[in-house]
Computed example of a mutant assay.
Amino acid sequence: MNNETLEKMRQLRLYGMYDAFKTNLETSVKESLTADQFVALLVASEWDDRRNRSVQRAIRGASFRYNASLEQIDYSFERGLDKNQVHRLAGLEFIKEHKDVFITGSTGTGKSYLATALGYHACQNGYKVMYVNTAKLMGQLKLAKAKGTMLAELKRIERLDMLILDDFGLQPFDPQSRLALLDIIEDRHQKRSTVITSQIPVKEWYDIIGEKTVADAVLDRIVHHSLRVELFGESLRRKKTNPENVFL
Protein backbone atom coordinates (compact mmCIF):
# COMPACT_ATOMS: atom_id res chain seq x y z
CA MET A 1 0.00 0.00 0.00
CA ASN A 2 2.73 2.47 0.99
CA ASN A 3 4.83 1.58 -2.05
CA GLU A 4 1.81 2.19 -4.27
CA THR A 5 1.28 5.58 -2.63
CA LEU A 6 4.92 6.49 -3.13
CA GLU A 7 4.75 5.52 -6.79
CA LYS A 8 1.65 7.68 -7.31
CA MET A 9 3.41 10.62 -5.66
CA ARG A 10 6.39 10.12 -7.95
CA GLN A 11 4.20 9.94 -11.06
CA LEU A 12 2.37 13.08 -9.96
CA ARG A 13 5.78 14.74 -9.50
CA LEU A 14 5.10 15.42 -5.84
CA TYR A 15 8.79 15.01 -5.11
CA GLY A 16 8.86 16.92 -1.83
CA MET A 17 5.89 14.98 -0.53
CA TYR A 18 7.46 11.74 -1.80
CA ASP A 19 10.71 12.36 0.09
CA ALA A 20 8.92 13.34 3.30
CA PHE A 21 6.57 10.34 3.19
CA LYS A 22 9.42 7.93 2.42
CA THR A 23 11.56 9.37 5.24
CA ASN A 24 8.70 9.09 7.71
CA LEU A 25 8.07 5.48 6.74
CA GLU A 26 11.72 4.68 7.36
CA THR A 27 11.93 6.52 10.69
CA SER A 28 8.42 5.87 12.04
CA VAL A 29 7.98 9.56 12.86
CA LYS A 30 4.41 9.33 11.58
CA GLU A 31 3.43 7.38 14.67
CA SER A 32 4.08 10.44 16.87
CA LEU A 33 2.02 12.79 14.67
CA THR A 34 -1.70 13.33 14.43
CA ALA A 35 -3.33 12.94 11.02
CA ASP A 36 -3.55 16.73 10.66
CA GLN A 37 0.10 17.17 11.61
CA PHE A 38 1.21 14.49 9.16
CA VAL A 39 -0.74 16.03 6.27
CA ALA A 40 0.67 19.46 7.19
CA LEU A 41 4.18 17.98 7.15
CA LEU A 42 3.67 16.48 3.69
CA VAL A 43 2.23 19.70 2.27
CA ALA A 44 5.01 21.82 3.81
CA SER A 45 7.65 19.48 2.36
CA GLU A 46 6.10 19.73 -1.09
CA TRP A 47 5.85 23.52 -0.78
CA ASP A 48 9.51 23.85 0.22
CA ASP A 49 10.66 21.51 -2.55
CA ARG A 50 8.76 23.39 -5.24
CA ARG A 51 10.00 26.74 -3.98
CA ASN A 52 13.61 25.55 -3.91
CA ARG A 53 13.36 24.18 -7.44
CA SER A 54 11.74 27.43 -8.59
CA VAL A 55 14.61 29.44 -7.10
CA GLN A 56 17.20 27.22 -8.78
CA ARG A 57 15.43 27.62 -12.14
CA ALA A 58 15.39 31.39 -11.67
CA ILE A 59 19.11 31.44 -10.87
CA ARG A 60 19.95 29.30 -13.90
CA GLY A 61 17.75 31.47 -16.10
CA ALA A 62 19.44 34.65 -14.88
CA SER A 63 22.77 33.57 -16.46
CA PHE A 64 24.95 34.98 -13.69
CA ARG A 65 28.69 34.85 -14.37
CA TYR A 66 29.47 33.56 -10.88
CA ASN A 67 27.93 32.89 -7.48
CA ALA A 68 27.49 35.93 -5.26
CA SER A 69 25.95 36.57 -1.87
CA LEU A 70 25.12 39.76 0.01
CA GLU A 71 26.28 38.05 3.20
CA GLN A 72 29.78 37.58 1.76
CA ILE A 73 30.39 41.20 0.80
CA ASP A 74 33.53 42.51 2.49
CA TYR A 75 33.11 45.98 4.01
CA SER A 76 36.63 46.18 5.43
CA PHE A 77 38.11 47.84 2.32
CA GLU A 78 37.82 51.60 1.87
CA ARG A 79 35.76 51.95 -1.30
CA GLY A 80 32.72 53.98 -0.29
CA LEU A 81 30.44 50.97 0.17
CA ASP A 82 27.81 51.84 2.78
CA LYS A 83 26.59 48.77 4.66
CA ASN A 84 23.30 50.48 5.52
CA GLN A 85 22.69 51.30 1.87
CA VAL A 86 23.34 47.69 0.87
CA HIS A 87 20.93 46.50 3.56
CA ARG A 88 18.27 48.86 2.23
CA LEU A 89 18.81 47.56 -1.29
CA ALA A 90 18.56 44.01 0.09
CA GLY A 91 14.99 44.83 1.11
CA LEU A 92 14.25 44.87 -2.66
CA GLU A 93 11.88 47.80 -2.29
CA PHE A 94 13.47 49.26 -5.42
CA ILE A 95 12.03 46.35 -7.41
CA LYS A 96 8.57 46.83 -5.93
CA GLU A 97 8.79 50.57 -6.64
CA HIS A 98 10.21 50.01 -10.15
CA LYS A 99 13.30 52.10 -9.48
CA ASP A 100 16.63 51.72 -11.22
CA VAL A 101 20.00 51.29 -9.50
CA PHE A 102 23.34 52.61 -10.78
CA ILE A 103 26.55 51.08 -9.42
CA THR A 104 29.58 53.01 -10.65
CA GLY A 105 33.28 52.99 -9.87
CA SER A 106 36.69 52.11 -11.21
CA THR A 107 37.60 48.59 -12.25
CA GLY A 108 37.86 45.97 -9.53
CA THR A 109 35.87 47.83 -6.87
CA GLY A 110 33.13 45.19 -6.73
CA LYS A 111 30.41 46.65 -8.95
CA SER A 112 29.56 43.42 -10.75
CA TYR A 113 29.71 41.37 -7.56
CA LEU A 114 27.28 43.68 -5.76
CA ALA A 115 24.88 43.68 -8.71
CA THR A 116 25.08 39.90 -8.98
CA ALA A 117 24.53 39.45 -5.24
CA LEU A 118 21.40 41.61 -5.48
CA GLY A 119 20.31 39.50 -8.45
CA TYR A 120 20.77 36.24 -6.53
CA HIS A 121 18.84 37.71 -3.61
CA ALA A 122 16.01 38.75 -5.94
CA CYS A 123 15.84 35.23 -7.44
CA GLN A 124 15.62 33.77 -3.94
CA ASN A 125 12.66 36.04 -3.28
CA GLY A 126 10.69 34.99 -6.33
CA TYR A 127 11.72 37.64 -8.86
CA LYS A 128 12.71 36.99 -12.46
CA VAL A 129 16.21 38.31 -13.16
CA MET A 130 18.65 38.43 -16.07
CA TYR A 131 22.32 39.34 -15.87
CA VAL A 132 24.03 40.37 -19.11
CA ASN A 133 27.06 42.26 -20.34
CA THR A 134 25.69 45.35 -22.09
CA ALA A 135 27.81 45.02 -25.24
CA LYS A 136 26.93 41.33 -25.58
CA LEU A 137 23.24 42.12 -25.22
CA MET A 138 23.45 44.68 -28.00
CA GLY A 139 25.16 42.07 -30.18
CA GLN A 140 22.48 39.50 -29.37
CA LEU A 141 19.75 41.96 -30.30
CA LYS A 142 21.43 42.67 -33.64
CA LEU A 143 21.37 38.95 -34.40
CA ALA A 144 17.75 38.76 -33.27
CA LYS A 145 16.85 41.59 -35.63
CA ALA A 146 18.53 39.78 -38.51
CA LYS A 147 16.52 36.65 -37.66
CA GLY A 148 13.28 38.58 -37.27
CA THR A 149 12.97 37.75 -33.55
CA MET A 150 13.94 41.10 -32.03
CA LEU A 151 10.42 42.03 -30.92
CA ALA A 152 10.12 38.73 -29.06
CA GLU A 153 13.49 39.32 -27.38
CA LEU A 154 12.51 42.84 -26.33
CA LYS A 155 9.23 41.52 -24.93
CA ARG A 156 11.13 38.89 -22.93
CA ILE A 157 13.44 41.57 -21.52
CA GLU A 158 10.48 43.81 -20.72
CA ARG A 159 8.91 41.12 -18.51
CA LEU A 160 11.99 40.72 -16.31
CA ASP A 161 11.54 42.05 -12.78
CA MET A 162 15.22 42.95 -12.64
CA LEU A 163 17.60 43.44 -15.56
CA ILE A 164 21.32 43.76 -14.76
CA LEU A 165 23.27 45.60 -17.47
CA ASP A 166 26.92 45.06 -16.60
CA ASP A 167 29.87 47.07 -17.93
CA PHE A 168 27.62 49.75 -19.39
CA GLY A 169 29.46 52.03 -21.82
CA LEU A 170 32.71 50.07 -22.11
CA GLN A 171 32.04 49.86 -25.84
CA PRO A 172 30.53 52.77 -27.78
CA PHE A 173 26.92 52.52 -28.91
CA ASP A 174 26.42 52.45 -32.67
CA PRO A 175 23.10 53.70 -34.12
CA GLN A 176 21.42 50.29 -33.93
CA SER A 177 22.58 49.69 -30.35
CA ARG A 178 21.40 53.14 -29.26
CA LEU A 179 17.90 52.45 -30.56
CA ALA A 180 17.87 49.00 -28.94
CA LEU A 181 18.90 50.57 -25.63
CA LEU A 182 16.12 53.14 -25.95
CA ASP A 183 13.59 50.38 -26.65
CA ILE A 184 14.68 48.48 -23.53
CA ILE A 185 14.59 51.54 -21.28
CA GLU A 186 11.28 52.76 -22.69
CA ASP A 187 9.62 49.36 -22.26
CA ARG A 188 10.79 49.03 -18.66
CA HIS A 189 10.41 52.65 -17.51
CA GLN A 190 8.40 52.82 -14.25
CA LYS A 191 7.30 49.20 -14.78
CA ARG A 192 10.43 47.19 -13.97
CA SER A 193 13.85 47.72 -12.35
CA THR A 194 17.14 47.94 -14.19
CA VAL A 195 20.51 47.71 -12.42
CA ILE A 196 23.39 49.26 -14.36
CA THR A 197 27.07 48.87 -13.51
CA SER A 198 29.67 51.07 -15.16
CA GLN A 199 33.24 52.29 -14.81
CA ILE A 200 32.05 55.55 -16.34
CA PRO A 201 30.47 58.23 -14.10
CA VAL A 202 26.78 58.86 -14.76
CA LYS A 203 27.49 62.44 -15.83
CA GLU A 204 29.45 61.09 -18.81
CA TRP A 205 26.78 58.65 -20.02
CA TYR A 206 25.31 61.29 -22.31
CA ASP A 207 28.47 61.31 -24.42
CA ILE A 208 28.79 57.50 -24.25
CA ILE A 209 25.30 56.94 -25.64
CA GLY A 210 26.00 59.38 -28.43
CA GLU A 211 23.26 60.87 -30.59
CA LYS A 212 21.63 63.77 -28.70
CA THR A 213 17.96 62.88 -29.13
CA VAL A 214 18.41 59.25 -28.08
CA ALA A 215 20.71 60.14 -25.18
CA ASP A 216 18.18 62.67 -23.89
CA ALA A 217 15.35 60.13 -24.14
CA VAL A 218 17.29 57.36 -22.37
CA LEU A 219 18.74 59.44 -19.54
CA ASP A 220 15.53 61.36 -18.91
CA ARG A 221 13.85 58.03 -18.10
CA ILE A 222 16.49 56.52 -15.84
CA VAL A 223 18.51 59.23 -14.11
CA HIS A 224 16.08 61.29 -12.07
CA HIS A 225 14.56 58.57 -9.86
CA SER A 226 17.50 56.18 -9.67
CA LEU A 227 19.34 54.91 -6.61
CA ARG A 228 23.12 55.24 -6.79
CA VAL A 229 26.06 53.38 -5.35
CA GLU A 230 29.39 55.07 -6.11
CA LEU A 231 32.52 53.04 -5.36
CA PHE A 232 36.10 54.23 -5.43
CA GLY A 233 39.62 53.16 -4.57
CA GLU A 234 42.17 50.65 -5.74
CA SER A 235 41.14 47.40 -7.38
CA LEU A 236 40.25 44.77 -4.79
CA ARG A 237 41.69 42.11 -7.07
CA ARG A 238 45.15 43.55 -6.46
CA LYS A 239 44.58 43.58 -2.70
CA LYS A 240 43.51 39.96 -2.38
CA THR A 241 45.89 37.82 -0.41
CA ASN A 242 43.71 34.70 -0.62
CA PRO A 243 41.28 34.82 -3.57
CA GLU A 244 39.09 32.12 -2.04
CA ASN A 245 38.53 33.99 1.21
CA VAL A 246 38.09 37.58 0.11
CA PHE A 247 34.78 38.57 -1.42
CA LEU A 248 33.98 41.69 -3.35
Score class of each variant (00 low, 15 high):
Lys22Thr: 02
Ser45Phe: 00
Met17Ala: 09
Ser54Ala: 15
Ser45Gln: 04
Ile59Glu: 14
Asp48Trp: 06
Gln37Val: 09
Lys30Tyr: 08
Leu12Thr: 07
Val29Gly: 00
Glu26Tyr: 04
Thr23Tyr: 05
Glu31Ala: 12
Leu33Gly: 08
Arg53Met: 08
Ala35Asn: 09
Glu46Ser: 01
Asp48Phe: 07
Arg51Lys: 15
Asp19Asn: 12
Thr34Tyr: 06
Leu41Gly: 06
Tyr18Arg: 02
Ala44Ser: 13
Ala40His: 09
Val43Asp: 05
Ala20Met: 05
Tyr15Trp: 08
Asn52Tyr: 09
Val55His: 12
Val39His: 01
Asp36Ser: 15
Val39Pro: 00
Ser54Asp: 12
Leu14His: 02
Glu26Pro: 04
Leu14Gln: 01
Ser54Pro: 02
Glu26His: 08
Leu33Pro: 04
Met17Arg: 00
Leu41Val: 07
Ala20Arg: 01
Thr23His: 15
Val39Asp: 03
Ala35Pro: 03
Val55Asp: 10
Arg57Ile: 15
Arg53Thr: 03
Ala58His: 11
Leu14Phe: 05
Val55Pro: 10
Asp49Cys: 07
Phe38Leu: 10
Arg50Lys: 07
Val55Leu: 06
Thr27Cys: 04
Gln56Trp: 06
Leu12Ala: 15
Asn24Thr: 10
Ala58Gly: 05
Arg53Val: 02
Ser32Ile: 11
Asn52Ser: 13
